[in-house]
């Protein structure tokens, strides 16, 4: 589905460019949820921006469904790290969520698209959009906030609006940059489960950046650990935990505990030790987990 090969990117003028990503290779199968962890400034957001087609990488290729990403791909949705600045302050919450539903559908599947298009009148479209926005807000627990403005909401609520907006447009590829950073623990667990539910219901591929190691293991099919900036893939771990996952019991599984410790160790490791660890090596196989080399990651879907 998504194939990243030799992705390298630097910021700044040529000559004084500062590297942000170095030689990232990653293959993600359709329907897979890949968690990306790594220290602050290692290039996680940069990686997502490259995949989204928002910046053109200095080197390397990204293909999506076989064709190279040169512009923003169809069927993409993004939850930006700067969620509060990504909401339009002059639109209500409901209008914010409904806004991307007006985008052009490049190559919509014929079956679904036909009925929409023959239905024709703009009024029906508007009502359908409003309904979809309401439904999306309901899934993030903001049913009654649709008429308010983003700046009237708390940070965590704004973050949920951004998530609702991304889910409402039924993406094929969903990029989430620390999507649960500002919400309370209870809501955070609810949102993690929401993402897992949505992923179970629709055919959707998700890249999720997080600082929370527990979370990366809990939601992920795979956990990709990046080195401190400029980011390289330090490890690409498969998460073999039973589905469906459950907040209490899954987190008690020995496999979960061990994998979490493993990811934690990999994130904390000093730069100097990078050489000692091959991506494949990653401290040997742990029961319930297997380390996969990044460029052979086949996924499961």
């Amino acid at each position: 589905m998504l194939e990243i090969t030799g992705l390298t990117h630097s910021y700044g003028p040529a000559g004084r460019a500062r590297p942000a990503l170095r030689d990232i290779s990653l293959a993600v199968a359709g329907g897979e949820l890949v968690s990306i962890v790594g220290p602050s400034g290692c290039g996680k957001s940069t990686l997502l921006r490259c995949v989204a087609g928002l910046i053109r990488p200095a080197a390397g290729t990204i293909t999506l469904g076989g064709s190279p990403v040169e512009r923003v791909p169809d069927g993409l949705a993004v939850v930006f790290q700067d969620y509060s600045r990504s909401l339009l302050p002059w639109l209500t919450v409901a209008d914010n969520v409904a806004l991307p539903l007006r985008r052009k559908r490049g190559s919509a599947p014929a079956a679904a698209g036909e009925a929409d298009r023959t239905a024709g009148p703009a009024r029906a479209g508007r009502r359908a959009r409003r309904e979809a926005a309401r439904a999306a807000l309901a899934t993030v627990g903001l049913t009654s906030e649709g008429g308010r403005y983003p700046w009237q909401l708390s940070g965590g609520m704004q973050q949920r609006v951004a998530i609702a907006r991304a889910l409402a447009c039924d993406p094929v590829l969903l990029l989430m940059d620390e999507p649960f950073g500002s919400v309370d623990a209870q809501t955070r667990e609810d949102l993690e489960d929401l993402v897992l539910t949505v992923r179970g219901q629709r055919d959707i591929t998700i890249l999720l950046v997080t600082h929370d190691i527990d979370e990366s293991v809990y939601v992920g099919d795979r956990v990709v650990v990046l080195t401190p900036g400029p980011g390289q893939v330090r490890a690409d771990l498969r998460v073999s935990l039973p589905s469906p996952r459950e907040q209490i019991t899954t987190r008690q599984l020995p496999a979960f505990v061990q994998l979490r410790a493993e990811v934690g160790r990999l994130v904390r490791e000093r730069e100097t030790e990078t050489g000692a660890h091959s991506e494949r090596g990653a401290a040997g196989p742990v029961p319930g987990t297997e380390a996969t080399a990044a460029n052979t990651g086949t996924g499961q879907g």
């Binding site: 921006r49 989204a52 087609g53 928002l54 923003v72 169809d74 993409l76 949705a77 993004v78 930006f80 700067d82 600045r85 990504s86 339009l88 806004l99 991307p100 007006r102 985008r103 052009k104 490049g106 907006r165 447009c169």
Partner: peptide, 12 residues
């Protein structure tokens, strides 16, 4: 960030 949002969601 708003400009990126518009691009990422492919607003016409």
């Amino acid at each position: 960030v708003l400009a990126d949002t518009a691009r990422a969601f492919r607003l016409p």
